[in-house]
């Protein structure tokens, strides 16, 4: 009995923690069903008749569809490219351990160290000189580059955990290296691949600065639309902000929900391959 109660209390505590962290997000989502005066109302309104006008307005906006499409295309393409090339490199680092492995791994991580506003500066000047500003490909490849270091690190950890015996068996049986990489190794590091995809996806999905500076009308994602669209008539358009944020947060949240298992395993950097 007391065991049961204790477990119930424990579970209640866990839920409480989760809800506390979720509360601000919930507040944004709740606001998206309010009218502007209701959002600013004091005392705050918890129970009200929801309005869907904010969403109707948002979905009717051609710019929304355009930017949403750009967001999806940029994030998906960039992380796929990044994870693909990272996987190949991680395999090489893990299996062949070329002389400079540690140094190269460190160098890769250094990409992530530079503050965005520092990294954007030379990239901006370079894009201007090469005429890549506001080009979709230029933007995608840039994001791919930014997603590479983390992907290489995760995937190398996972490949380290796959016994080289598999390769040897493959070679003995006459398999090509390509088959060994894609057919023998890849399936075993799947959680790492998923974790790398999701983490980088979240980064690219929410990226604002680079998109704002080196992007343009062809490449603007939703964060840029949020930043420019939130002012209206000199004031802040709270209904626009809350409804767009809510819509935009759904895909990554669904991803976290659906791939949670892989995400948790993925963050072990390959030290665990079972259930977490």
């Amino acid at each position: 009995m007391s065991e049961r109660v204790r477990e119930a209390l424990y579970h209640a505590l866990l839920w409480l923690v989760a809800l506390v962290f979720f509360a601000p997000v919930f507040w944004i989502a709740l606001s998206s069903f309010k009218t502007a005066p209701q959002i600013l109302a004091v005392p705050p309104i918890l129970f009200f008749r929801p309005t869907f006008a904010n969403y109707a307005r948002l979905f009717a906006e051609p710019a929304f569809q355009h930017h949403f499409f750009d967001s999806v295309a940029l994030s998906v393409l960039a992380v796929l490219i990044a994870v693909a090339v990272s996987f190949l490199a991680a395999f090489a680092f893990s299996r062949f351990r070329p002389g400079a492995t540690n140094f190269l791994m460190f160098l890769l991580l250094s990409i992530r160290m530079l503050p965005g506003s520092a990294a954007i500066l030379p990239v901006y000047l370079m894009y201007v000189a090469f005429g890549w500003k506001d080009s979709f490909l230029g933007m995608t490849l840039f994001y791919a580059m930014f997603s590479i270091p983390f992907s290489v690190w995760i995937l190398k950890g996972f490949i380290d955990g796959v016994s080289p015996r598999f390769d040897e068996t493959g070679i003995v049986n006459g398999a090509s290296w390509f088959s060994i990489i894609t057919r023998l190794t890849l399936p075993q590091v799947f959680p790492g691949v998923v974790a790398a995809l999701i983490f980088n996806f979240i980064f690219v999905w929410n990226e604002f600065l680079f998109n704002y500076i080196i992007g343009g009308i062809n490449t603007s994602n939703i964060p840029v639309m949020l930043a420019t669209g939130l002012s209206n008539g000199g004031g802040i358009d709270w209904t626009f902000l809350s409804s767009l944020t809510t819509v935009y947060i759904l895909p990554p949240i669904l991803m976290v929900y659906c791939f949670q298992r892989y995400l948790l395993v993925g963050m072990t950097f390959g030290t665990v391959r079972g259930e977490v």
Partner: peptide, 15 residues
């Protein structure tokens, strides 16, 4: 991009 607050801005179509 224009914002959807006013139907008048719909003049600039997506295409």
């Amino acid at each position: 991009m224009s914002k959807g607050t006013d139907p008048a801005t719909g003049v600039w179509t997506q295409s």
